[in-house]
Amino acid sequence: MVLRPMLKHSRNFASFILSLGLALNCLTVGCGAGPEAKRKIKETAQYHYNLAHGYYFNSRRANNVDGAMQEVLKSLKADPNYAEAHMLAGMIYMGREIHVKAIRHFKKAIALKPNYYKAANNLGAAYLHLGRWDDAIKVYESLVSNIMYVTPGHGHNNLGWAWYKRGNLDKASRHFRMAINLAPQLCVAQNNLGLVMLKQKNLRRAVKYLRRAIKKCPNYAEPYYHLGRTQSDAQNFTDARSNFERCVKLAGDSKWGDRCDQRLSTLPRGGGME
């Protein structure tokens, strides 16, 4: 006897909540608004997005990330369905290493704009940062199979890295080679293929690819570390010292600079083949 009235009231309450949600959503995005009101909403969103973009990318403003975040959130408040604003918000969160929120915005950007390949690429990068290799593989496999994706070399490199971290060196090698074939100047792919060769104990070919990475990008610190480590293990301390010193000079206080500096401190004094 009591259940039916309660069920009736529950249904009425649920309907009320649904209606309230729709009404609030309409207040935000302008459901039922006339053309003039919709135009003003778009203009407001665009205005704040342009400010955010300027704050984030304009070096003359010293990359005002806080200002960019405030403005992009204002843009999304005006128009929650603004794909480019979601993309920018994701980039800002990713730069702050708040990857979960970055992923949420990249996914929303893709949902609103399915061919938004830059957002998909950034989504994959966020997964890589979190060590979510399977999710990254899914994203990049979809990207590299799409002929409209304009930077497939980068996609293959990132896909190769995900497979490398998964421990599948054959697939990693295949995608790094594809990246090099599609983008010969992509020195990070040369470096990564060198890492595969190191894992496979093929030192001669590892050195070959690491040197290629350095030749193509002389200011790229990471391959100096791997090359120096390989030379140090072979007791070629003179060349190892040279590469570690170059790495420290290039990388400074970064992760690679610290690693190279630590390696330098362990080398025997005097260098040479010992």
Rank of each mutant, 00 (worst) to 15 (best):
A102T: 04
G270N: 03
R263S: 10
R263H: 12
Q185E: 15
N58V: 12
N202V: 02
N50Q: 07
L264W: 14
D239K: 10
M273S: 11
K208H: 13
A52S: 14
D66K: 15
K107G: 02
S10N: 08
F57V: 05
N12P: 00
A125P: 02
L143T: 00
L7S: 13
N243I: 06
L112V: 12
A23F: 14
L88N: 06
V65Q: 06
K113F: 07
A251C: 08
Y164K: 11
Y56H: 12
N50E: 09
L22I: 08
V207P: 04
Q46M: 13
P80T: 01
N236Y: 12
D134L: 14
S19M: 14
I92S: 15
H86N: 11
A102L: 04
M273K: 13
A109K: 02
I92F: 05
P268T: 02
W161I: 01
G153P: 04
G67T: 12
A206G: 11
S254L: 03
V29Q: 03
H9V: 00
L22W: 11
P80L: 03
N157D: 13
G67V: 14
G194A: 10
Y82A: 02
T151Y: 15
F16M: 14
N146G: 02
A111M: 08
P152D: 14
L143E: 03
C31A: 09
Y117A: 06
G32A: 05
H99V: 07
A126N: 09
A234M: 15
G34V: 03
G271P: 03
